[in-house]
Design a protein around this nucleic acid. Structure first.
Lengths: 227, 227
DNA sequence: CCGGCTTCTGTTGTGCACAACATGATCCGA
DNA sequence: TCGGATCATGTTGTGCACAACAGAAGCCGG
């Protein structure tokens, strides 16, 4: 992690929150895992008090849940709620292009190009989900630049992060073809990049929507074969 | 406020959070107003520590913002962000009927009937925005029962609360016809009730959408005349 | 009279000790 | 041997004292 000790006190809490968000979304902390306030406070060189403030925010965001006398746990999502989120994301995907769209800046385009390159270079690593999770996580952040509607994009980012971490988690817990999933995602990034380079935000949104739909379908299919 | 001292410790924080949410949404605390941690802690008979945890959650929800050495303030929203939220709500209004709609239970219908009755009985009170704000706040809560998609309805409720408190606030700060606005809202509730009684959730959503649109238009009109 | 510095006051942020609580291990009696 | 109460341990929740900080009032030198 980045060193945060040198930061001014006001920003330190934000940096800490971002760090914990990353660890949860990048599956350093698995769904259901217990987080020790004492250990985390020690690791970051602070007392429990400011750490607890950060955990309270994460609890408000639905990423962790604390139980008195038991522990603080990374949240899991029931299948039903996951389905609800997917249904919602299908609709939201189109809204990004419809509400306050911003023509992608050269900066944004180059970010997408780097993402595409990383997607092509990504090789399946059965032992660590982190490279794939990292790529998706960065993709989510960059994608949030495509609309100026901050409330919408913040919400979409949140939902995407929730599904992404659970998707990657169950991906590694099952016998799905990891290489194939990586290839599909890399293809999505490239397709979206192509649409963006022609300035067609709506096409980019449609492509994204299609991939959300397909990803959800594959997830449900595996869920059925397991039960 | 309800007495919370007798509640078990775990729920007390939740009750406290709900209470502060209400006070902000019901305009007991105006946008921009400073909240004193010490005073609030005294009022609720607790120390600053658990209060600060609640404030941290509210800060995560965007209802308050703390500045080191200065104070904790109820958030205000820039006109631009308010417009973004309204644009978003126009789209979300239809999603409620489209995603995981639930046929309104008799319980829900009777709640809507009581809301309609309160709307008819509501008389403009230029001195206190609380009765109107209370009615809208309750309407928001009941409306959230119309879809089983919890993430969607939670988000919609949050956005609605944000616009509602700022709408009521500017309503009382301007010379708009208070009685007319109340009549319009009461009419909306009755129209929605009528649609729900025929089981037509989509019609109810369309009516709501229309009122969101009109409310936004009136808000913008007054904004122009003031500047 | 004025500009800059200092001091003072009130606020949020932090550290630490202890209370409240849940859970599993242990002990004891039947 | 078994059931239940009791205790031991580790966790989150709370209270309190103090640090860090921002802002305003006051002071002092020019």
């Amino acid at each position: 992690m980045d060193d945060i000790a040198h930061l001014s006190a006001l920003d330190r809490a934000d940096a800490l929150e971002a760090e914990l968000r990353e660890r949860i979304c990048l599956l350093d902390y698995l769904p259901g895992q217990r987080l020790s306030e004492t250990e985390l406070a020690e690791e970051f060189g602070i007392s429990r008090t400011p750490l607890r403030k950060v955990l309270a925010k994460l609890e408000g965001a639905g990423l962790v849940a604390s139980r008195h006398g038991v522990g603080t746990f990374v949240t899991e999502l029931a299948d039903e709620e996951l389905d609800q989120i997917y249904r919602l994301r299908l609709e939201l995907a189109q809204l990004a292009a419809k509400l306050d769209p911003v023509p992608p800046a050269p900066e944004t385009l180059s970010r997408f190009r780097r993402l595409a390159e990383r997607g092509r270079a990504l090789r399946p690593d059965p032992d660590s989900p982190r490279p794939l999770a990292r790529l998706i996580y960065d993709f989510i952040q960059v994608q949030a630049e495509l609309s100026a509607n901050r409330p919408l994009m913040d919400f979409a980012t949140h939902l995407y992060s929730q599904t992404a971490r659970l998707w990657v988690h169950s991906l590694y817990a099952s016998d799905l073809d990891l290489g194939e999933e990586i290839a599909i995602f890399a293809r999505e990034v490239e397709d979206i990049l192509q649409a963006l380079e022609t300035g067609d935000l709506e096409a980019a949104a449609l492509i994204h929507r299609a991939h959300v739909s397909m990803s959800w379908r594959r997830l449900r299919a595996r869920r059925l074969t397991r039960s």
